[in-house]
Design a protein around this nucleic acid. Structure first.
Lengths: 138, 138
DNA sequence: GTTGAAATCACCCGAAAGTATGAGGCCGAT
DNA sequence: ATCGGCCTCATACTTTCGGGTGATTTCAAC
């Protein structure tokens, strides 16, 4: 605030100086006006930048997850398989997944096996890693 | 460019209009100057914003991984345990980790067990998930 | 010079994960 | 109507994981 007031005062001072110099030398009104306009345009640009720059904060944004349908189609994963995969990524065991999905442990194993085949991996940790890289899961 | 020229022309026109109106009415020079200054300050602000805004591109930056030493100390993980954890996150089996680290499978198991205890998790998938959230691994 | 943390390894055992194979029901497409 | 994919489940088997326990060595710190 004080800084802005000071700068403004300086400008006004400059204005007055130019005023006197030009008026005494009887130079055309248009040129004088042009100078003033130019001066305050520059001032405006400076002011605008000063006011908006701090607002542009550098911050790391975590982009919201969005499923890559294209990649999903490529893998050929079914809905159920994707669900199981997602739960794996949350660190759940096969039994916990079975319980949450109201299906048997064996069925979860079947899904996981076929899911591993489609992703061409051998372990759930690999599957999760790959699925994240391919934006199949958050 | 053309747009800017047009806007500038408009401003000059407005200036002239004000000029005529005020001069004919014989209003004080200071007020006239003040108005001009204000007008061009606003113009400057607008111009400055127009020119700089497009430069501020919205882009998602993947921040380079940096280990959170603070969190690492909190967990009390040893160097070897961290290594094992990192390899787990790459989807490697205990045997593969043992081979890459030139240690026995049993030793890897020991490390993983103590690592699970320190992170308070039960499975490697949970450990990997947590470690990522805590910036212990990329 | 003891103490303690870290790293190494071993053995056992049960639990979980993963493989192989088969099978039944459902549904949409040819 | 039959064919294929999906979902479901089962049995049997192998492999991997993880817990428990104990031991040795090294190395730095007190």
């Amino acid at each position: 605030m004080i800084a802005y007031a000071l700068v403004l005062a300086l400008f006004v001072l400059a204005l007055k100086l130019i005023d006197h110099r030009f008026v005494t030398k009887d130079i055309s009104m248009d040129i004088y006006l042009g100078l003033v306009a130019l001066l305050f345009t520059v001032f405006g640009i400076w002011l605008g930048l000063k006011l908006t720059r701090p607002q542009v904060k550098l911050q790391v944004i975590t982009p919201p997850f969005e499923l890559d349908h294209q990649k999903l189609d490529e893998t050929g994963l079914s809905q159920r398989e994707l669900e199981v995969l997602e739960m794996m990524s949350k660190g759940l065991s096969n039994q916990e997944i079975a319980d949450r999905l109201f299906i048997s442990l064996n069925t979860v194993k079947t899904h996981s096996t076929s899911l591993f085949t489609k992703l061409d991996v051998k372990r759930r940790t690999q599957a999760v890693k790959l699925a994240k890289e391919w934006s199949l899961i958050p």
